[in-house]
Computed example of a mutant assay.
Amino acid sequence: MTATRFRYLFERYYAQQSTPEEQHELMVLLAQSAHDEALKQLLDELLLQAADNDQTMSDDTANNMLQEIMQTNAAPTPARIPTFPVWKRLTVAACTLAAAATAGYIIYTRSHTTTNAPMASVHAPKPKNEHARLVMGNGQEIDLDHTTATDVDVQSGVSVSKKGNVLAYNSAPSTVPTINTVYTNKGGIYQLILPDGTKAWLNAASSISFPTAFKDTTREVTIRGEVYFEIARQSNQPFIVKTNNMKVAVLGTAFNIKAYEEENSCTTLLEGAVNVISGNITRKMQPGQQALINREHTGISISRVDTDIAVAWKSGRFEFNDNIKTIMRELARWYDLTVVYEGAITEKSFAGSFSRQDSLKDILRQLELTGSIHFNIADKTITVRP
């Protein structure tokens, strides 16, 4: 396949002159990373052309083109069905609208998306900065956002330093451990360095409880919500993470655990090896795998996944490829919202990549462009309708 052929297919598609066979051929090529650079060049040219020329297309035609691209390869079980990388689908879709209807659509990219299409309501809250608090062994609570101290006094023999949104523990050998807990609020993230040097990143609405010194034969912590770990290797003292329905045992590795009460629990392994334990079932994971435990505790399911998507939150991104209720739970945790549903809500998949610094209104607008879901925002409550 030559670059000339790819350009020909793309230009035919944009001009609405392609045959069904040509459309299919283009969609197959778009799914291949070998054509990424050619695609980006064509999109850049298209935007420049749109800015320089008075090209117009009817709103109905533009929206039909968007929906066709957005829904390509959609399926009720997106985690099991291959789809385009999300940046390609939304970039091509938004770019087509931008070039065709120069009234103001702006190209969507991985790091930023804005449009000026009207929504039914406004007053959407903005994402927050880091919001976290520390509860010490004696029950005293410290607001980590508002304390100006660089050294935090938690107990005798324990040195705790605070720099930005990072809290680092260092314990003396004689320390008698107590349990500390770090909580993140909705819209907040925080990083913690445990006494053994293990690093933990907490996603929004999460918590981790840990001893101020690891004195036992194992290093044990308990989490709720979502936490990414980079474990300090200590072969004689395994690291164990506990949630409400599973345990993960490791020696030294990097992995993500998602254990919100309202969702199935999952562990995604990036490096090393871990054992996932639920009840009397133990499964060993390899890098690139994800272990899923449903809320009924009926076993452990392991599959291969894109680990970059699983830890996108750590890099300040949303990577969606799921039904709208799952997506709205994640948005609600970040933007501190309440979500209610009216009518028969679609179960189909929505895919998209957004920055966590994007406004909620812009993200919802992109979802509305699919034509199958609509939103109304009133203060901190979002109503979702068909």
Rank of each mutant, 00 (worst) to 15 (best):
A3P: 12
T4D: 11
L9E: 02
Y13R: 00
Y14R: 08
Y14I: 09
Y14L: 09
Q17W: 06
E21K: 04
E22T: 05
Q23I: 05
H24G: 08
V28S: 12
L29V: 02
H35Q: 11
H35K: 13
A50D: 00
N53G: 05
S58V: 06
A62S: 15
E68M: 03
I69K: 00
N73W: 09
P78W: 14
P85M: 01
V86N: 07
L90M: 15
L97A: 02
Y108E: 11
T109L: 00
T109Y: 06
R110Y: 10
S111I: 07
A120F: 14
N129T: 11
R133F: 06
V135F: 04
G137C: 04
G139H: 07
I142Q: 04
T148R: 01
T148E: 15
D151S: 12
V152K: 01
D153K: 14
N165G: 04
A168W: 09
A168Q: 11
S174K: 12
T175E: 05
T175Q: 04
T178A: 12
G188Y: 03
K199L: 10
N203H: 06
N203A: 13
A205V: 05
I208Q: 00
T212V: 06
E220V: 15
R224C: 12
E226T: 06
Y228P: 01
I231S: 00
R233W: 05
R233G: 04
P238W: 14
F239C: 01
N244A: 13
A254P: 00
L269N: 02
E271M: 13
N275W: 04
T282H: 08
N294F: 06
E296M: 14
R304D: 14
D308M: 08
D308E: 10
D308R: 11
D308N: 15
N321S: 14
E330W: 06
D336C: 12
T338N: 15
G343M: 10
I345M: 07
I345F: 05
I345T: 13
F350I: 03
G352L: 08
D358G: 09
S359W: 08
K361H: 11
Q366S: 08
I373T: 03
F375E: 02
I377P: 05
D379I: 15
I382H: 04
I382Q: 02
T383G: 02
T383Y: 05
